[in-house]
């Protein structure tokens, strides 16, 4: 993510990029900041003000949401402090700040946009942020132990309806992989080559990237087989990891093959 040109360009223009690197170099200044900000693991991200106060410690890993959060964080901090102090705030500004931070539910945001009198570019921006929120909430509804096949079907139908209504996510936004998967399922059920073509290349690229990553792990774990040959527990763990990697690779290859079969069926 940070190696990509669009992130680097955005970062130079819109934020001070601070790498809080924990090095374990004795006496190095800033080597304990992870603890200062009460993070428990790596990597973690936060948006801070000029005094170092965290405006948010929840930063999504896609540039669209990151840039919205960085843009909205100062206003959100100022307005939420004003609200807490019992002061009146500009409701349009508050709504945009909440949307930018992703701190509002899609249905509530929709209702507020309708009654806010937002128009023009601001409304288009707000509508887009709500759509991203909506898709992220749908993605959330398909995860977890209690999710049923009906829940997944309902999410698929909602994604497909939005697609047919002409709604498109900003490229690279966090719900994109979920939406793409749903569109492939919908394309299969509805024999829709347009929906298929919209999502296919990204889904394929994602599976190929996963295969590459998994294959990258293989040499290390194969070497561990030899290294751990005298330690039964470690050897079992290594074998089980290798088996899991093989399954993931096989699964991703199968998904690519399925996409190619579907492409032929749909003449896409």
């Amino acid at each position: 993510m940070f190696s990509k040109k669009d992130f680097q360009t955005w970062g130079k223009q819109n934020a001070i990029l601070f790498a809080a690197v924990m090095t374990k170099i004795e006496g190095r200044k800033d080597d304990a900041l992870l603890r200062t900000y009460e993070f428990r693991g790596f990597p973690s991200m936060a948006i801070l003000d000029a005094d170092g106060t965290a405006m948010t410690k929840k930063v999504p890993r896609d540039l669209y949401s990151m840039s919205n959060i960085v843009a909205a964080a100062p206003a959100y901090a100022k307005l939420s402090a004003a609200i807490e102090a019992g002061n009146e705030v500009d409701q349009k500004q508050w709504l945009m700040a909440q949307l930018g931070m992703g701190r509002i539910k899609a249905t509530e945001a929709k209702a507020k946009i309708a009654s806010s009198g937002l128009s023009g570019k601001a409304k288009a921006r707000a509508d887009m942020m709500v759509f991203v929120l909506e898709m992220a909430e749908l993605a959330g509804s398909t995860r977890g132990r209690n999710v049923t096949a009906e829940d997944k079907m309902a999410a698929c139908v909602a994604v497909y309806e939005a697609f047919q209504a002409g709604k498109r996510l900003p490229p690279g936004s966090s719900p994109e992989p979920f939406v793409d998967d749903m569109l492939i399922d919908a394309a299969k059920s509805n024999k829709d080559s347009v929906a298929f073509a919209h999502a296919c290349e990204r889904v394929k690229a994602r599976h190929l990237a996963q295969i590459k990553t998994m294959k990258g792990y293989l040499p290390r774990y194969r070497a561990d087989l030899e290294k751990n040959k005298d330690d039964e527990k470690k050897l079992e763990r290594t074998k089980s990891t290798l088996k899991r990697i093989a399954e993931i690779i096989e699964g991703a290859e199968q998904k690519i093959a399925d996409l190619e079969t579907l492409a032929k069926k749909l003449n896409a």
Binding site: F18, K24, I47, D51
Partner: peptide
């Protein structure tokens, strides 16, 4: 990526430019 690794320098730059600090916590050990 024009990253800064000194926290005081990052804060001073944020004060000067009015930009927020995007802090990425990572490790090299």
């Amino acid at each position: 990526g024009s990253w800064v690794t000194d926290f005081d320098a990052a804060k001073a730059e944020a004060k000067k430019t009015g930009k927020p600090i995007f802090a990425y916590f990572t490790r090299t050990y």
